[in-house]
Design a binder for these strands. Structure first.
Lengths: 167, 167
DNA sequence: TATTGTTATACTCTATAACTATA
DNA sequence: TATAGTTATAGAGTATAACAATA
């Protein structure tokens, strides 16, 4: 969909190093910009992979946590996914209406709901993970297993650092 | 060494308010999920850094390209930032209204506008880059210069690969 | 008082289709 | 016809404030 053609600068390109990148060469030195570009590509593709399964990225993420953590509450879910509690409501609604999870009352604390995946939810999640792994293997085909592990490790350290700063 | 345990306690005995630790453990093996978490942290902080300068991430990015590429057209700008042409319009409007850039008619092709940064735009861009670099130095303080370069390099390869796949 | 889930709201980013004026 | 800029619109993610029920 996106035209691949390289926009030709009107300004005479006398810079020999301008070849590898485009007009955004200066921006690419910012880690955040490069991260956002790569993330957008990954996210768009992941969304396309999940769509036939009736999931979005957010609903898949929530379903995954619920599958792995039976009787998790919505507050715990929100915290684990680094999102606001209020934004989990519609996500939980969608998963419940799709029959993939259930809300159950907690006897010891009637404010909370205990979220539990249904059998259909567990199966849907397994299929989604398989599809996403295949998608990532394709998207990251240029990276060796070691490079991929390095990337994930570095990103996790940024995440950890960011979490600490918030406090 | 802790052996494999049962998935996280459903109802934490003491600290139910503490961030549930590792409920998203399975998700973290997906590169896209880890990338998105780290990117969200970086983006949120970058937005806070740019806000006092009257810029958003998108307007800053556009301003940066325009500063580096005098008389760039909106189509070229959109292509370089990997965004739709239609979405550049409001961004350009905001920059123009702020007096940071100017739209100029192209005599040879009256469909196009040539975008040029004003002196104020050039200065604003310089201040924004300095602020963002300081922000990134703080956010990425745990990474050595080599690790940071490695991260950027790996992300660029994902970006390049993704661009090719789209066509 | 504090917390859980909820509602309402708003802003940003992104994507698509269709229009205009030029080429 | 094809392209550049534009308009309108819609979807999704994210963020904040406030409320009722419950602790």
């Amino acid at each position: 969909m996106i035209s691949k053609q390289n926009p030709v600068p009107q300004v005479p390109s006398d810079d020999s190093t301008a070849a590898p990148f485009g007009l955004d060469r200066a921006l690419r030195d910012l880690v955040g910009y490069t991260m956002k570009r790569a993330t957008n590509l990954m996210q768009a593709d992941a969304a396309r992979v999940l769509e036939p399964l009736g999931l979005r990225i957010t609903t898949f993420s929530a379903l995954s946590v619920i599958c792995d953590t039976p009787d998790v509450t919505q507050s715990q879910l929100a915290a684990s996914l680094n999102m606001e509690r209020s934004n989990t409501v519609l996500i939980i609604d969608a998963l419940e209406e799709a029959g993939l999870i259930g809300r159950h009352r907690v006897l010891t604390d009637r404010r909370s709901f205990a979220l539990r995946a249904t059998l259909a939810g567990t199966r849907r999640r397994r299929a989604a993970v398989a599809a996403l792994q295949a998608h990532e293997n394709a998207m990251l085909a240029d990276l060796s297993p070691e490079e991929r592990a390095t990337l994930v490790g570095l990103l996790r350290r940024i995440d950890r650092r960011g979490q600490e700063d918030v406090q």
